[in-house]
């Protein structure tokens, strides 16, 4: 396998709150191969967004961050603000859930893309304007010439998200982080936006990190998947292996809690996610896990190879033989 374009090692993020230390991310490793789509799935509070906001250097000062985030071998954690700014928006770009808050309401969208280009590239305004129109065309906005002269409020939700994606790819990033990019959109528009993201990945070889809670979205576009729970990666592997033989009880629980045709009764996961002010000792999922034994709460388990994927479950063997029987 080729070298990772984005490599994260032992990332930890702690927020100092009035109620104490909130350990949002507790030692996460991520490898994004060039040109792949990595799906990061998990429920609210699992740390999936916080991990990548930390990688982008976008967390507030109240966050304590440790570990390593390397983009093309260059360390970002602990780097100077200037160094981080030269990377952010250039080689590492991000798209958020709400496109309206990512756009400036009083500037024409074309000008906002031009600003994005000129803050990282030495390009004259005329060329940058031409490039902005090209970018709008790439993301599938009809009449890009006219649309570039319009303001964000003149665009629909789906079109705004396309504009935001155009801005994000303006400087040919190596990695595009998309944080729930379709969650606020209707399902027919979601399908369009996912197609735009796939087209960008295929045309420009951009690696994409797609953060979502929707396993259907993962199944549609991801090459590989990280499943997060309670600030940790609990399972990681190719999309096919994760869906074919999930090897962590949480992933299995997540998949079987979804409604699908012919199923009489849904299977929820008992209990609810842990309070990250006082996460349980050992495996974060143990309090909700039917397979949990004493050893699960003894120490925090790490991802270890298990068949063709990585699982952090110390009972992965028993889980899988359970699937077979």
């Amino acid at each position: 396998m080729s070298e990772s374009v984005l490599q994260i090692r032992d990332l930890r993020v702690t927020f100092n709150t009035q109620l104490g230390e909130l350990r949002a991310v507790r030692g996460v490793d991520v490898d994004v191969a060039p040109g792949e789509i990595l799906g990061v799935v998990g429920e609210s509070g699992s740390g999936k967004s916080v991990s990548f906001l930390a990688a982008m250097g976008l967390l507030p000062k109240s966050a304590t961050i440790s570990g390593s985030v390397k983009l093309d071998g260059v360390e970002l954690i602990g780097a100077s603000r200037k160094a981080v700014r030269s990377v952010r928006g250039k080689s590492l770009a991000m798209v958020f859930q709400d496109p309206l808050s990512a756009l400036n309401p009083v500037h024409r969208v074309g000008d906002q893309i031009v600003e994005m280009i000129q803050s990282h590239q030495d390009m004259n305004t005329h060329d940058a304007e031409k490039k902005a129109v090209e970018l709008l065309e790439i993301v599938g906005i009809p009449q890009p010439d006219e649309r570039a002269r319009q303001y964000p409020h003149e665009f629909s939700g789906g079109m705004r998200q396309r504009v935001v994606i155009a801005m994000a790819i303006a400087n040919n990033p190596k990695v595009l982080i998309a944080d729930e990019p379709t969650t606020a959109l209707d399902v027919t528009v979601q399908a369009q936006i996912l197609e735009v993201i796939q087209r960008i990945q295929q045309t420009f070889g951009t690696a994409v990190v797609l953060i979502t809670h929707d396993l259907g979205v993962i199944a549609r576009v991801a090459d590989s998947v990280n499943v997060m729970y309670a600030g940790r990666n609990v399972e990681s592997g190719s999309v096919q292996s994760i869906f074919d033989h999930p090897s962590h009880p949480y992933t299995r629980g997540l998949l079987s809690s979804l409604p699908h045709e012919g199923i009489e009764r849904l299977q929820p996961i008992a209990g609810f996610p842990p309070n990250m002010l006082a996460p349980p000792p050992g495996c974060g999922f143990a309090p909700r896990c039917q397979l949990a034994i004493e050893a699960c709460s003894a120490e925090l388990p790490s991802l270890v190879p298990f068949g063709d994927l990585l699982s952090s479950c110390i009972r992965a063997d028993d889980l899988r033989s359970g699937i077979r029987s």
């Binding site: 429920e43 629980g253 809690s257 979804l258 009764r265 299977q267």
Partner: peptide, 11 residues
């Protein structure tokens, strides 16, 4: 609601 919780409410 998160999916794992949603299933219980639907039931």
């Amino acid at each position: 609601l998160d999916v794992s919780i949603q299933a219980g409410v639907v039931n």
